[in-house]
């Protein structure tokens, strides 16, 4: 059943957006679609408004960083839910490190407000059109975005701890 869900939604999206739907795969119980950034708002409002799809609930969204994935170093993951039919899907939108701008989802989902602020706070995504894009969890005078992979969790200058024996 899950495989058919992957294909049903993929067919609908493909016929409407064509090249902007980059790939589709099944990750455990979730159909995952990688879509292009310039059409993300249209795709999500299509998923929201289309009669048979009706993804009216934004479960969660978050940023991810893949420093080795050249041309797509940053990614935002959106999870949508159609509650009456219990369909859950995930959209992934990659962007290169020099272009952190995304359109805001606050026009469709009020709940995107704080989620986008969190993504901005942690990774430095800029959401165009967001009503109040300021830091949410960290203090306002922080000068960097702490979830990025270039900031190690532990102080790199410490000499009393070394990881040569343990860990990968």
């Amino acid at each position: 059943m899950e495989d058919t869900l992957l294909h049903t939604i993929h067919d609908k999206l493909k016929s409407k957006f064509g090249e902007d739907i980059i790939s589709a795969e099944q990750a455990y119980d979730f159909p995952v679609y990688t879509v292009s950034k310039k059409k993300i708002i249209e795709i999500i409002s299509f998923l929201y408004n289309e009669e048979e799809l009706g993804f009216r609930f934004l479960t969660t969204m978050c940023g991810i960083q893949f420093p080795d994935n050249k041309g797509g170093e940053f990614c935002i993951m959106y999870q949508l839910h159609n509650m009456p039919k219990n369909w859950r899907i995930r959209l992934k939108v990659y962007t290169p490190a020099n272009d952190m701008e995304y359109p805001t989802l606050t026009g469709i989902f009020s709940t995107a407000n704080w989620m986008e602020r969190e993504a901005f706070d942690f990774y430095g995504f800029i959401f165009k059109g967001h009503p109040n894009l300021i830091r949410i969890l960290n203090m306002e005078d922080m000068t960097y975005h702490p979830m990025r992979k270039e900031y190690p969790l532990e102080d790199g200058t410490r000499e009393d701890k070394n990881d040569t024996m343990f860990g990968r």
């Binding site: 969660t60 978050c62 991810i64 009020s110 709940t111 704080w114």
Partner: peptide, 28 residues
């Protein structure tokens, strides 16, 4: 709904772990 979004690269710890925290979402 408390959700755990886990990206694993096969290493010893998660590559990315995101908590879907219900409070954070509805408190707005």
């Amino acid at each position: 709904e408390l959700g755990f979004y886990l990206v694993s690269d096969g290493g010893r710890s998660p590559y990315r772990l995101h908590f879907r925290r219900p409070c954070f979402i509805y408190y707005q």
